Amino acid sequence: DTDVKTRVELELHQDKAEYVLDEWLNHDKKLVDITFDILYTYLWFTNEPIDAQKLKSDKVREVIEQTVEPMSAWSLLTALGNRMKFVRQPKKQSVERIEKWVLQSVVPSLAVLKKTGHWHEIIEAINSVELSAEHQKLVEANLVNAITSAK
């Protein structure tokens, strides 16, 4: 138990994503265990750099691990990882949250598309998209708020 909360995102594609879903849904493996298996397989933090030649010659991780100490925090994390729980706390959507996200994360990419002549496709997509029920509720709620404020 701790007051420290860290957001971690692990993005998986194709075979790895299918493997995780299969293990989780069909083999009753806990998602935390699967995640830590993946983290441990692909990441390893050490206090000192690993010789580049050794990285090229020793493809077996165990051989390298015998000669280089991991960071104590990494050892603790991987040792205690199976005691962690994933908590999903979805945040309520709002027009303001969507706008903030678009301004921070999407606008730079949109600027690239506009400056490279791909803006037309974006406008067409915006004009033709079918909103989900959740998005439609946001639009309607925003309109009601605007009308109420105007009165």
Rank of each mutant, 00 (worst) to 15 (best):
residue 16 K to F: 11
residue 96 E to L: 10
residue 51 D to E: 15
residue 34 I to D: 06
residue 121 E to F: 01
residue 67 T to D: 12
residue 26 N to M: 04
residue 48 E to P: 03
residue 66 Q to K: 14
residue 96 E to T: 01
residue 32 V to M: 06
residue 51 D to K: 02
residue 72 S to I: 08
residue 27 H to V: 00
residue 31 L to Y: 12
residue 79 A to P: 00
residue 7 R to H: 09
residue 112 V to R: 06
residue 62 E to M: 03
residue 72 S to Y: 04
residue 115 K to W: 05
residue 129 V to C: 11
residue 7 R to C: 06
residue 90 P to H: 07
residue 88 R to T: 01
residue 22 D to N: 15
residue 64 I to D: 02
residue 7 R to M: 09
residue 122 I to K: 04
residue 24 W to N: 01
residue 19 Y to N: 11
residue 116 T to L: 05
residue 90 P to W: 01
residue 120 H to E: 15
residue 126 I to S: 11
residue 108 P to L: 11
residue 110 L to C: 08
residue 23 E to G: 02
residue 73 A to W: 05
residue 134 E to H: 12
residue 110 L to Y: 12
residue 89 Q to A: 08
residue 109 S to M: 13
residue 125 A to C: 05
residue 117 G to E: 13
residue 113 L to D: 09
residue 94 S to P: 15
residue 114 K to H: 12
residue 66 Q to D: 15
residue 27 H to C: 01
residue 44 W to T: 02
residue 118 H to P: 05
residue 39 L to P: 02
residue 27 H to E: 07
residue 113 L to T: 03
residue 91 K to Y: 05
residue 64 I to N: 03
residue 93 Q to V: 10
residue 88 R to P: 00
residue 85 K to C: 07
residue 61 R to I: 07
residue 16 K to R: 10
residue 117 G to F: 09
residue 9 E to L: 15
residue 18 E to I: 00
residue 6 T to E: 15
residue 107 V to Q: 08
residue 46 T to F: 04
residue 35 T to Y: 03
residue 51 D to Q: 06
residue 72 S to P: 00
residue 103 L to H: 04
residue 57 S to L: 10
residue 116 T to H: 02
residue 23 E to A: 11
residue 110 L to M: 13
residue 16 K to D: 05
residue 31 L to C: 05
residue 83 R to S: 10
residue 72 S to M: 08
residue 25 L to S: 10
residue 98 I to C: 00
residue 22 D to F: 11
residue 130 E to G: 01
residue 45 F to H: 11
residue 132 S to F: 07
residue 34 I to P: 05
residue 97 R to N: 09
residue 62 E to I: 08
residue 66 Q to P: 08
residue 31 L to K: 11
residue 59 K to W: 05
residue 80 L to V: 06
residue 129 V to S: 08
